[in-house]
Simulated assay, not measured.
Amino acid sequence: MSQLPIPEHFQSASVGEIWRVPYQDRSGAAKAWLKKHQLRPVSQSQTSVKLLLIDVQNTFCLPDFELFVGGRSGRGAIEDNVRLCEFIYHNLGKIDHIIATLDTHHLHQIFHPIFWIDKNGTHPTPGVTTILPEDLQSGRWRVNPEFSNQSPTQLHAYALHYVQQLSDGGKYPLLIWPYHAMLGGIGHALVPAVEEAIFFHGVARHSQASFSIKGDRTLTENYSALAPEVTTDQFGTEIGTKNDSLIKLLLESDQLIIAGQAQSHCVAWTVNDLLTEIQAIDPDLARKVYLLEDCTSPVVIPGVVDYTAQADAAYQRFAAAGMNIVKSTDDIIA
């Protein structure tokens, strides 16, 4: 099947904006699209082509929100999502199943300002404060005792264990993030243009999209959609587990295509965990993974931090392992 045209309702200029998806209108249009292009329901597909969208949410993808991923161009996530929507529409008859992860947070989490205080009771400044083992050992930062029913001594011991685990495991150090992707808030929602494309695909192919929550545990981070950064406390008690059901779903694909935000963080960490699972089963399975490099951008805060090099290094490592680094305009689906 050749690539399909872009439906008239898609307007690239609106990808960076908030608006309501007109579900009923799009449902009718998708049914007409199905008939016009003779699309088959996914139940009749001979293969399984899955598209994994990592955290394509307002909080990361729109300029007025908390953690807009601008990349070096300053418009990274917007430009990525224009290409992503076009990729979905062009390949509507080839993509069988869309899976979207949703970064999901609450107020009191280990990477939010309210979790920590200094000796004056002041919370750390988000976006620029990292907390290292020596910061806890020196007393520069401590866990806020007013926001937990646990013993401050136990929480301090856990916090020290946590940041030490990050350091020992070669993870990014604990960065205090602005409040973002708050459950129930508009930032948590998918970007409207991408949500619309997912909905349109679902109606046209009779395919129910899947949605996977990540990052909602108080005492650990979840850059990866497949596993938390730290899984046990200082006593060895489990505080988070791998998402085995999602891992199984992804590995059952004949072809798995991945896009989303941010390339340097949640995308890279997810793909890294997926690669670990693949190498434990059969390294050749990496060949069925396709990374849309023009539908993802790294975290770049001008004058503060630029994770482009880390993102590039991760993708080079994935390519060396057998994964395919491609563009959304490439003809990658049989």
Rank of each mutant, 00 (worst) to 15 (best):
M1S: 12
M1K: 14
L4Y: 09
P5F: 08
H9V: 11
F10Q: 04
A13F: 06
E17G: 00
I18P: 00
W19Q: 09
R20F: 05
R20E: 14
R26Q: 10
S27W: 10
K31L: 14
A32N: 05
A32I: 09
Q38W: 00
L39E: 06
P41K: 03
S45T: 12
S48R: 15
K50T: 13
L51M: 08
L51A: 07
V56R: 04
N58A: 08
C61T: 03
D64S: 08
F65K: 02
E66P: 03
V69I: 15
V69F: 02
G74T: 09
I78Q: 04
R83Q: 12
L84G: 00
L84I: 04
H90V: 02
I95V: 15
T101W: 12
L102R: 15
T104L: 12
Q109V: 06
F111M: 14
H112N: 14
I114D: 12
K119P: 00
P126G: 10
P126T: 09
E134F: 05
S138E: 05
R142A: 10
P145D: 14
N149Q: 13
L155M: 15
A157F: 03
H161I: 02
V163Y: 08
V163M: 01
L166A: 01
S167C: 00
D168P: 02
G169E: 02
P173K: 09
L175F: 04
I176V: 15
Y179A: 01
H180D: 06
H180R: 07
V194P: 02
E195R: 15
E196N: 14
A197T: 10
F200V: 06
V203K: 13
R205F: 09
S207K: 13
A209P: 14
F211N: 00
G215W: 01
G215L: 02
A225M: 08
V230G: 11
F235K: 15
E238S: 13
I239F: 05
G240L: 08
K242P: 00
K242W: 12
N243M: 06
L246Y: 07
L256D: 03
G260Q: 08
A262D: 07
S264F: 06
V267I: 12
T270Q: 04
V271M: 02
V271K: 02
I278Y: 03
Q279T: 10
I281M: 11
D282G: 08
D282A: 09
L285V: 01
R287W: 01
V289P: 08
L291F: 13
T296H: 11
S297H: 13
P302S: 09
P302V: 03
Q316D: 05
F318N: 04
F318W: 13
A320D: 09
A321T: 00
M323R: 11
I325L: 15
I325E: 00
K327V: 03
